[in-house]
């Protein structure tokens, strides 16, 4: 470590955690999920952001400020690394969402199975209306 990195922005503290392993449930969403850009094209919608983006911002903010569970800087660093590795090529804000879920699981704030079960429940609920 020290002054030999390639990039001016990466400081030593973050450079130690480059091994990211994929998480099955998120991998499935990455592969199968339809991103906002595609939905817009299909349905002729022009809104640049998906409606859930602002809720995602709210979650990130609440995790940093209210919970102190995931400080913004740490979330952003993890997001940067994941965006260049596992979630490379995923557009924004889908990428931010995958990275957030990944980081929360990685930090043990909830489990992968727990998330999978919840996704199933939420999916049933949203699709039943």
């Amino acid at each position: 470590m020290g002054g030999t990195q390639d990039n001016p922005d990466i400081n030593d503290a973050k450079n130690t955690s480059s091994e990211y392993t994929s998480i099955a449930i998120l991998e499935r969403i990455r592969k199968r999920g339809r991103v906002w850009g595609d939905l817009c094209a299909q349905y002729g919608v022009e809104n640049p952001d998906p409606p859930w983006k602002v809720c995602l911002e709210g979650t990130c903010e609440a995790l940093a400020v209210q919970a102190c569970a995931l400080p913004t800087l740490e979330r952003r660093w993890a997001e940067d690394e994941l965006s260049e590795t596992l979630y490379q090529g995923v557009p924004f804000p889908e990428r931010q969402l995958l990275a957030l879920a990944h980081t929360l699981i990685q930090r043990g704030l909830f489990g992968e199975d727990e998330l999978a079960r919840r996704i199933e429940k939420v999916g049933e609920r949203l699709n039943s209306v």
Partner: peptide
């Protein structure tokens, strides 16, 4: 309200699932 995208995407579901779990865990 969302514009007329008549489809619930996996990402929309994921956003809500993450949020609900965080609330359930008492994070906020």
């Amino acid at each position: 309200a969302a514009p007329m995208v008549e489809e619930v995407s996996d990402f929309e579901i994921l956003e809500l699932a993450v949020r609900e779990l965080a609330i359930e865990k008492g994070l906020f």
